[in-house]
């Protein structure tokens, strides 16, 4: 037993005692691929194969009913002069900016408040509730809250005497409202991620700063923000990619009918092209463009992330 114990201590490295190591490595080749088998099947059939197929479709004319026929770069040429496509890109960009900025700023504030005030699990669980709720339900709920005639929010506005009605049908308000509704449902979740990051900051930094007479705002700016930067960057990458996938909310708040042009986001436009007009090839070309945009944005953000990590020390 004793001998085994000693060998274990050394065995954590790659080159352990001569006999044990050889015996263990012998059959990993077969076992390894067996362990991977389900994931490889899932990956090959439902990720790799459709990715290749998607690229191929984007160069074809395909209506789902006939076989795809190769048309070269026609879909992409059509894209360039398609006003609706550019509009979809524009409104999606608008959505992403409003959504990400409002959500991140409020979440950061909330996280900082929790961090300095309380460790309550109940509070955190409460803030997480909207994240658990399907976007479809969230969309319905806010379509009701913002109903022009009976909605609670518009009643409140009426009480203040203002002559405005907030509605998803108003060209000016529609997109900010959609963005804010989604921010509402993901802010708690984002705040919790940031809060977890703040817990990693050594408390003595705050104690020291307090002794030196620094106020809370000063501490937030000089301690919390700089040390949290890697987490903020990571949260931004994840929420940015998620934000581009806005679909459910706009699919619901118009009662199941297509959204107004001001909220016809890129995901919805792809969906429409593919399943309303059966332009599968064209829809795939739009999806390709989205892949490229997300790829560039992710790369840029990852680079920022790495840059910010290096000056953490």
């Amino acid at each position: 037993m004793h001998a085994v114990g000693t060998r274990l201590g050394a065995g954590t490295g790659q080159h352990a005692g001569p006999h044990g190591r050889l015996r263990r490595r012998r059959d990993d080749r077969l076992v390894g691929w067996l362990f991977l088998l389900p994931v490889i099947i899932g990956f090959a059939v439902f990720y790799a194969y459709p990715t290749v197929r998607g690229v191929w479709y984007s160069f074809t004319d395909y209506s789902l009913l006939n076989d795809p026929s190769y048309v070269g770069g026609d879909n992409y040429k059509e894209l360039v002069s398609d006003g609706q496509f550019w509009n979809a890109l524009k409104v999606t960009g608008y959505y992403v900016v409003v959504n990400i900025v409002s959500q991140t700023v409020v979440a950061l504030g909330l996280a900082a408040l929790m961090h300095r005030l309380t460790r309550s699990v109940v509070l955190r669980a409460t803030l997480l509730v909207p994240w658990l709720v399907p976007n479809v339900t969230i969309g319905l709920l806010w379509a009701w809250m913002l109903d022009p005639d009976l909605g609670f929010v518009n009643h409140l506005i009426g009480l203040t005497g203002l002559d405005t009605t907030l509605s998803f049908n108003s060209p000016d308000w529609a997109m900010p409202l959609v963005a804010l509704v989604n921010s509402w449902s993901y802010t708690g979740y984002t705040a919790l991620l940031l809060y977890a990051g703040m817990l990693q900051i050594p408390p003595h930094l705050y104690e020291g700063a307090a002794i030196d007479g620094a106020g809370e705002i000063r501490m937030f700016r000089s301690i919390t923000l700089p040390l949290l930067r890697p987490i903020i960057a990571l949260v931004l990458v994840v929420s940015l990619i998620g934000s581009f996938q806005i679909f459910d909310t706009v699919a619901v708040v118009y009662g199941g009918k297509p959204p107004i042009p001001e909220t016809r986001v890129i995901y919805y436009y792809i969906y429409q092209q593919a399943f309303t007009y059966f332009h599968m090839g064209y829809a795939s070309a739009i999806a390709m463009v989205l892949v490229l945009i997300l790829g560039v944005l992710t790369t840029l953000q990852m680079r920022m992330l790495r840059a910010s990590r290096s000056d953490l020390g």
Binding site: Y49, P50, G54, Y57, I270, S284, L294, T298
Partner: peptide
Amino acid sequence: LRFPGRDVAFGIIIAALMVPPIFTLLPN
């Protein structure tokens, strides 16, 4: 586990993180 091809396989699977769901959704 240690076997040839492991890290390549891992790299390929991780690369799929970059593909947004809508792209595989249509062909799927």
